[in-house]
Design a protein around this nucleic acid. Sequence first.
DNA 1: AATTACTCCAACCGCTATTAC
DNA 2: AGTAATAGCGGTTGGAGTAAT
Length: 256
Amino acid sequence: MAYQGDKLRKGSWLEEEDERLTAFATLLGERKWDSIAILSGLMRSGKSCRMRWLNYLQPNLKRGHISAEEEQIVIQLHGQWGNKWARIARRLPGRTDNEIKNYWRTHLRKKTREEGNSQSKVYSSKPELLYQNGDSTSAWKYSIRDYNSADDHIIGPTDFSLEHYELPCMTYLNPSYETRLYDWIPKLSNDQSQAEIHGEGNGLDWCFCDPAWKYSEDCDPGSLDSLGFSRLGYELSIHLIVNMRKLQTVSFSDVC
DNA sequence: AATTACTCCAACCGCTATTAC
DNA sequence: AGTAATAGCGGTTGGAGTAAT
């Protein structure tokens, strides 16, 4: 271990230390932090060097205030995944897990508690996304297939083309739905586009949804619900747009 | 003006997972 | 296959800055 006999420095980093660490990390690569610590002559542990680099020195860090959009994403993903800060941070390019964690503790934890269950419940899981505000009497067919992930186990069946899911009414189309949908739709397909979505892109910058309702000729428009309204015959299409081109369309259609 | 309370966040610590040998 | 080293993750702490008294 580096400088076993000497006392390792702790606490705040000096500008000179930052410069030296930056130079050596750039030169030697972002690995072997113990080696970097030794070779750089910094009286720091490799672990400390790594932490400083990842949280402060590495290029492309955004810094500055978390935007309202980023905040929404943090709330949403925390509702889904809990304290998985590194995982959440991967969805926010330029932000570190430490930053997200601190932001949550200082800004959002209290806020979400105050708001009670209303917000966090909405984001808490995928099925609830589908059911929220919902008219649970309507059944919708989800037209994209194959969703089976150990991490995201919430939507169970793997063959979506055969499953019917409860979808809510038109209030489903609220704007914040876009990023929540992004979170799981890309995993639904095994085609080439999936790899693209999962690649090192620019996060949410390159993916959004464009929901639209249309009347479906296939359904029997004469069917009435319990209130006497025709609720059949519509189809919801959501386009995933990546790098300014439409990549995939996901359709939810009413089951007739 | 001095003191206390509070907020924020960088940095540390302990643990687990992964990689190298 | 086993062990040590390294990387990664999440919880916690401590100090600086600010607001309240």
